[in-house]
Amino acid sequence: MIQAKGYAAQTPETDLAPWSFERREVGPHDIQIEIQYCGVCHSDLHQIKNDWFPGVFPMVPGHEIVGKIVKVGDHVKNFKVGDLAGIGCMVDSCQVCENCQEGLEQYCLEGNTQTYNNLDRSGVPTYGGYSNTIVAREEFVLHISDKLSLAATAPLLCAGITTYSPLRHWKVGKGHKLAVVGLGGLGHMAVKFGVAFGAEVTVLSTSASKEAAAKELGAHHFVVTTDKEQVKAVRNKFDFILDTVSAVHDIDMYQSMLRVNGVQIGVGVPPAKLEVAPFSLIGGRRSLAGSGIGGIQETQEMLDFCAEHNIVSDIELIDIKDITAAYERMLKGDVRYRFVIDIATLK
C-alpha cells in the first residue's frame, strides 16, 4: 500500500485535521499523481457535514485535483511519468452500460464511483484531493496543458465542467441571449464560457456590488434581481438561463425572463425542494432542466478548449491549515471566485 497524508473530517461534527491513510498500489491500468493543487468546492463542505446524505468517514474531500504523474501501470497507454494530469469528480464507472458507452460516465446506470465519500467497486472508501497523492484508473485521468496556470486550472475539474457541459449540450452560442444566475465559483466560469461561445451574457444577481466584477469577466449586462423594475425589463428576454445558485430561490421569477421555448438549467443544489407554478412553464412552452458534471471525453474537450482560449478560474491560493477559515469565508461569498489549496503546505 502507498502511504498518504491529507486532511480529513473524522465525523460530521469535527473540522478537517491532518490524517494519515493508505492508497492502493498502482495496478496495471492505474496512474499515481503527486497532487500539487486541489480546488475547494462548496460541495466539499456539504459532504463533510452530511448535508445531503450519510457520508463515509473519515472523509478526505477534494475533487478538483491537479499534479504530476509519478508512476504508471504496465498497461497504461496514454500517459507517462512527468506528465501534468488531473482528476475530477469521479474515478470509475461500470464502463459498459449505454450511458458509459456514450461518454456519459457521470450518469452511469450502475452509479459512478465518486472521487471521495464513496466506496469503490471493491468496497474500499475513496479519498479525495486534500492529500499529497492519489491513484486512479487511466480512463478517469485527464491531460492538463502546461500553457495554463496549474493552480487556476484545478477548479475547471468541477466548476468548469459543470458549466461547460450544459452550455455545450444545449448548443448555446452566437445569436443566443444567456443569463447566468449567481456570480460565484460556478457563475464566473459560466460567464467566461458563455462569452467564449459567442452568446450575449447577462448576470442576474441579488448583489448590485457585483456589477463591476461581472463586467470584468466579460458579461455584457447586469440585472439586480431585487429591483422589480430591472426584473420587469428583462421579461421574455433570454433563450437560456444557467442557474448556479445553491440557495432556495424563486424559480417562477426566472421563468418569466425566458422567451418562448426558453430553458432554465439548474446546476446548483439548494438544500430544499424548489417550487414552480405549472403556468410558468406552460405559458411559454418553457423548460426547467438540470445538469451535472460532464463525462471524461467532454471534460478533456473542455480542458483543451481552455488551453486554446486561455481560460482558467479566478482563484485565491490558500494554505491547507486555513481550510476551515476558507469554508467560513466561502459561506459568506467572500472569495473571488474559488479557493485552491497549495498541497505543498501539507506538512
Rank of each mutant, 00 (worst) to 15 (best):
P271E: 02
A307V: 11
E298K: 06
A272V: 12
N310S: 15
V248W: 08
D304L: 08
I251M: 13
I293T: 15
A277H: 08
M253K: 09
F305T: 01
E308T: 13
P278Y: 03
L303N: 12
A277Y: 11
D304C: 04
R285F: 11
S291F: 12
P278N: 01
G294K: 06
V269G: 07
D243R: 02
T244E: 05
F240R: 01
G284A: 02
D250M: 04
H249S: 02
V248A: 09
A272D: 14
K273N: 14
G284D: 03
I265Y: 04
G292N: 12
A277R: 07
H249V: 08
Q297Y: 13
Q255I: 09
A247M: 12
N261P: 01
G294M: 08
G262L: 04
V267R: 00
F240K: 01
D243A: 10
C306R: 05
I311G: 04
E308N: 11
Q255R: 05
I251R: 08
M253I: 04
V269Q: 07
R285T: 14
D239F: 14
I311W: 02
T299F: 11
P278H: 00
I296H: 14
P270S: 04
M302K: 10
L258E: 04
I293K: 06
G283S: 12
T244K: 01
F279I: 13
